[in-house]
């Protein structure tokens, strides 16, 4: 692909600035990471609606909760490790349980954070957030999906967790594409296998589909940007045609998109399923490219997984 590349986190600053202009109730709560999360653009544009509570993610979520209880529309932003991990009980009790209009936007998720190593490479956040009642979870693949997803989140008055990454990825979508909570999108049609992917793994899935096409296996690739609610009808109708499924994500294979798709399919339409994800391990330092190879989340593993499920597909 020769498209322009940008990271999904870059979309955060741009989306927040647009939201700030759209709605005077939008406030941004930050735990001292504005330069890294790209929230600084909002801080500069709307200084009276930007609150940096310092290095205190638990306090950040509590403050967001208090603001939502008075009618504000808080966007709380931090690195995913410290947002979803450090402040979990606060997210559970002060956001999800009272079902408040709070948007949690986590950056620097996944192994491709790179050199910072295991503490900063959050591979469990989708699982942690997905299991909370009332919480929706979204993982955009590129700049435009991240940007438009965050902007349209203003329409919802429920809790939402959006997972963004640090790695540069192709600008795959157009500025006019829309990404609704609960949605997904077939980005390549095929009849032989369904590949469900999110985040950076969408691009690995598309590369895999190119290779598979040469072997006369037509892969259908779904960008499953909404992990919860899962676009079950979309996935099921594809799998009913293909009879097999591979799920690919930059997350522990336990509890994330892999878990969500497997739970749905085994109940509604059981077919052979394989996962391309982090194999229940923590990360370590390295370049993003090295880490993707080392942790076996490349298009090659998707091609291999497709070969396995295709051979045993449901007919």
């Amino acid at each position: 692909m020769t498209m322009e590349t940008r990271s999904t986190r870059e979309a955060l600053g741009d989306a927040l600035v647009e939201l700030g202009g759209l709605d005077g109730d939008v406030v941004v709560i930050d735990a001292d990471a504005a330069s890294s999360t790209h929230v600084k653009a909002f801080a500069d544009g709307f200084p009276d609606r930007y609150y940096n509570v310092g290095i205190a993610e638990q306090n950040m979520i509590e403050v967001a909760s208090g603001m939502a209880l008075v009618g504000k529309k808080p966007y709380a932003t931090a690195f995913s490790s410290f947002l979803a991990g450090r402040a979990y009980d606060q997210i559970r009790c002060c956001v999800a349980m009272p079902n408040l209009n709070i948007k949690l936007i986590a950056t620097h998720a996944g192994i491709t954070v790179g050199e910072d190593g295991a503490t900063h490479q959050m591979l469990e956040d989708v699982a942690l957030m997905r299991v909370l009642p009332n919480m929706s979870v979204m993982v955009p693949a590129d700049y435009w999906s991240a940007r438009n997803m965050i902007i349209s989140s203003l329409k919802s008055d429920k809790p939402l967790y959006v997972r963004l990454g640090r790695a540069e990825v192709p600008m795959f979508y157009s500025p006019r594409d829309e990404f609704a909570i609960g949605g997904g999108r077939i980005v390549r049609e095929g009849k032989d296998v369904t590949i469900v992917a999110c985040g950076i793994m969408l691009f690995e899935a598309l590369k895999a589909a190119d290779i598979l096409a040469r072997q006369e296996i037509e892969a259908e690739v779904i960008d499953c940007y909404s992990i919860k609610p899962l676009p079950e009808d979309l996935i099921q109708s594809s799998v009913r045609r293909t009879g097999c499924c591979v799920v690919a994500e930059e997350h522990n294979r336990i509890g994330g998109l892999c878990g969500a798709v497997a739970e749905s399919l085994c109940v509604n339409y059981p077919v052979p399923v394989r996962f391309v994800a982090i194999d229940d391990r923590f990360g370590e330092s390295g370049t993003p490219a090295e880490l993707q190879e080392y942790y076996s989340i490349k298009f090659r593993e998707i091609v291999g997984a497709v070969a396995q499920v295709w051979a045993t597909r449901r007919r």
Partner: peptide, 12 residues
């Protein structure tokens, strides 16, 4: 958690 929630309320 109440103290932090109260801060958010007071700020808002």
């Amino acid at each position: 958690m109440g103290a932090g929630i109260s801060c958010g309320m007071a700020m808002a």
